[in-house]
Every structure is written in C-alpha cells, then in structure tokens.
Design a protein around this nucleic acid. Structure first.
Length: 259
DNA sequence: ATGACAATCAGAGATTGA
C-alpha cells in the first residue's frame, strides 16, 4: 500500500498539476492539506472518476484537509478532539481497508507565526491535543499513522539554513519539544527510519529562488505506531514535483507499507 | 531587508502562509 501526504496549497490553483500528479504517481491513498476550499466546492467527481473515494474537511479560504483512496475507507471522522471551539479544518481520520486495516490520520498543524503571540499559543495548544490523540492511537495497539504538514523542522539537519529558522515557530525549542514529546511516546518517523543525515526537504519557499538554491526545510512527516512501523517497506520524498509547472511549495512524502 | 512569492476573497489590497 503506497500512501502519500501532500500539502497542495489550494485545490483550485493546483487542480491540473495535482490531477496530473495523481495520474502519474498513482498513490493508493493521498492525504492532502491546504485544500483551501469548502467541501461543496472540492471537485470530488473528477477524482471519483479516477477510482478514488474522496473525503474532505474544508473551510472557506484557508486550511482544509482531505483523504483520497482507491481502497475502501471506513470510520471517517473530522476535527481534532479536545476543543469544541476550534473551527479550523486541520484533522481527518479514516481506516483504510487493504490487506491489513490501517488507521490514517491526516493533519495540518498550525504554522504558529509570529512567535511568540496568540498564533503560537494556538499551535502549542493544538500540539497538546495532538499528543492526547496520539496516546490513544498507541493504546489501540493497531497499525496507525499520523501524516501531514506538521509545520515542524525536527532538527537542524532538516533545514538548509538552520540559523535562519532559529526563532521561527517551525523550529523554536518549544515547538521541537512538543513534537519530540509526541514522537517519544513510541512513534517511528518513517522518512528518518530510512534515511539519515541532512539535505532532504519537503518545502521550498516561492521566494528568492529557494528551489533552485535547494534552500528547503523538511516539515511534512509520517509518524507510525509500532504496529504500523513493522509494516514499513520504504519512505521517500518526491522532490522533483517542486520543479514542475505551477507547483505547490510543498512536495509529496511517501510511505510504502506491507498492507 | 518594512523585501521577495503565491493564494484567497474580492473586485484593491489586506491576510495568510513558512
């Protein structure tokens, strides 16, 4: 089972590029962030015609997550538990019924800038809620994963210019600590389980020729429960997508599971 | 570097992103 997570930066703006990518790369499951669309305006029929079931959790203008799957999905829920007043569309769950059932959680973690400030407080509070959900996933002792745009640069090796991000919400110590607290509950970060060292990124800013200078950061991640990590065949970043026509500023990150 | 770049909503330019 091949699963990709991809922050597409707007389904309207990315429709053709994303549709072409889906045809060519053909994930069994695509976990999307920043669809920037209400559910009614997501072009679901276009992707259903390609053989995908489509589940969205959108809102007007910003954020929004989705799961597209060639395999049957069950138990779809949306919204991260823990704050009934949180109206930002950043979380979707489903169980994918392959050879083995895999619980898939798609997330778009808040950016948090400027830090410090209320947006940073929201990010850290959201991560606390994520930790609570993560504990329950581990307690289930089932194959499960949480994937998406974490807006976290885990370590200095995950940025081409780590000093430029030192005070940014993506790399501040409180952000990294919150991420590691979740990871250290017992998750395996799929890409790092396969590839060590620096130089691999999943985001390049549109500005200042960041892609051409390979001035990137690695902020899109798969966290696997132990039962899911046991199924991990491979994980990789499809970085060449960043050089195509009308690209997102993120690229797809993949796992291949024996499931 | 108060920058750049891109998307959204709106129908200009502020807001958001990372």
């Amino acid at each position: 089972m091949k699963i990709a997570t991809f922050n597409i930066n707007g389904i309207k703006a990315r429709f053709q590029a994303f549709s072409d990518w889906l045809d060519e790369s053909a994930p069994d499951v695509a976990i999307l962030q920043e669809i920037k669309s209400v559910d009614e305006n997501f072009p679901r029929e276009h992707f259903e015609d390609k053989g995908y079931s489509v589940h969205t959790h959108g809102q007007k203008s910003f954020n929004g997550v989705a799961i597209l799957s060639k395999l049957p999905l069950e138990d779809i829920t949306t919204g991260l538990p823990g704050d009934d007043d949180d109206e930002q569309a950043r979380w979707i769950e489903a169980t994918v019924m392959g050879e083995k059932a895999i619980k898939i959680c798609g997330l778009y973690l808040p950016n948090g800038n400027p830090a410090p400030g209320p947006k940073y407080d929201y990010k850290l509070a959201w991560m606390q809620r994520l930790q609570e959900r993560a504990k329950l996933l581990l307690a289930s002792e089932e194959p499960a994963l949480m994937a998406g745009d974490y807006n976290i640069i885990p370590q200095d090796e995950d940025a081409a210019r780590p000093d430029a991000w030192r005070d940014d919400a993506l790399a501040r110590p409180e952000s990294r600590d919150a991420y590691r607290r979740i990871l250290n509950l017992g998750f395996t970060e799929a890409f790092r389980a396969r590839t060590q060292g620096g130089g691999d990124y999943s985001f390049w800013d549109y500005q200042a020729g960041a892609w051409n200078r390979n001035d990137g950061i690695r902020i899109d991640h798969f966290l696997l429960t132990p039962q899911c990590a046991d199924l991990l065949n491979d994980s990789w970043i499809e970085s060449d997508v960043r050089g195509r026509e009308k690209p997102s500023d993120h690229v797809p990150v993949w796992v291949d599971l024996a499931a």
